[in-house]
């Protein structure tokens, strides 16, 4: 009986699903876009996720890391990610080409509270790589346009060449049912026709906002939060209707490895989406 190796009879939550890279191209110098499809067709279609959730992506020999899903569940089958080259795993991902395989498991996290958001106005403020999780929300709102009130997008980048999904967002300006405002801190091209200035300079462009029926979603570099939150509070948006999605170190995604612990919660289970009230209420969030 000794040394009997029993194989688990349970679903192993750590087992990644093989997935193929369908398309990949550079968005900016250090951010690439990846469109992937889970190899098992049935599993690809049944991969149900919510906006704001994330997935663990693994590259054999390099490791595994968490990434926001940038695609929308309203377009099932393909998963999209905006990935910045910043560590061991992302460097390995950058070396991959179309048709190469990666591992995927998930989705994880709480995601945005779509049910509560329905019927309300949606104000999305993104900066830099913050576009990765919030693009999912934007596309979801546009795909289900009748379920939401006004949809307002404020997008900021350092300069035009660093604006993620620049062409995609510029083309969205055509839409009558989206208030799309783009801004760069500095125009180094000379042919930028949109706003110039930090993302908060876009706030005066929002007219007649009804704060009590507005959900404000924010994601961007740490420095951005302080200033954007100030603007949102000035607009009188309730603290529990200001939603942000946060980054933490995660190794498991299922609330076991401990790395993403904040106070009594785990970011991978109870986050990564938090309200501004959570942030005031719980220490260490931002």
């Amino acid at each position: 009986m000794k040394n009997e190796n029993k194989v688990s009879t349970y679903e192993n939550p750590f087992l990644p699903e093989p997935a193929r890279i369908v398309r990949t191209y550079h968005l900016t110098e250090d951010v690439k876009f990846f469109q992937v499809r889970i190899a098992d067709m049935e599993k690809a279609l049944s991969f149900k996720y919510k906006i704001g959730q994330f997935a663990m992506i693994s590259v054999l020999g390099a490791g595994e890391a968490p990434f926001s899903i940038s695609s929308t569940p309203s377009r099932p089958g393909l998963l999209e990610f905006c990935i910045r080259k910043t560590g061991i795993v992302t460097e390995a991902i950058f070396r991959l080409k179309e048709n190469d395989m990666i591992g995927i498991r998930g989705p994880y996290g709480n995601g945005f509270p779509v049910e509560q958001m329905r019927g309300n106005d949606i104000l999305i403020t993104m900066g830099g790589l913050g576009a990765a999780p919030l693009r999912s929300v934007l596309l979801y709102c546009l795909d289900n346009r009748d379920q939401f009130g006004r949809v307002i997008l404020l997008h900021g980048a350092k300069k035009p060449s660093e604006m993620l999904l620049r062409e995609e967002f510029l083309s969205l300006k055509q839409r009558q049912d989206l208030e799309c405002h783009l801004s760069v801190d500095k125009d180094d091209t000379g042919n930028w026709t949109e706003n110039t200035g930090v993302v908060t300079t876009l706030f005066p462009k929002i007219e007649n906002l009804v704060p009590s029926s507005t959900y404000a979603l924010v994601c961007g570099p740490p420095v951005m939060y302080k200033f954007v939150l100030k603007e949102l509070l000035k607009l009188n948006i309730p603290k529990d209707q200001i939603l942000m999605t946060l980054e933490r170190r995660m190794k498991c995604g299922v609330g076991k490895c401990g790395h993403c612990a904040i106070d009594y919660i785990y970011t991978c289970l109870d986050g990564p989406v938090f309200t501004y009230w959570d942030v005031i209420h719980m220490r260490e969030l931002i």
Partner: peptide
Amino acid sequence: CYNIQDRPVLGENYSEIKRCWDACTLENYS
């Protein structure tokens, strides 16, 4: 708490995905 590491095995064509104890008191934990 634990960490997960992908360790390619030299001379073989596979990796060992290892799980090892970690400590929240260590510097690089978060």
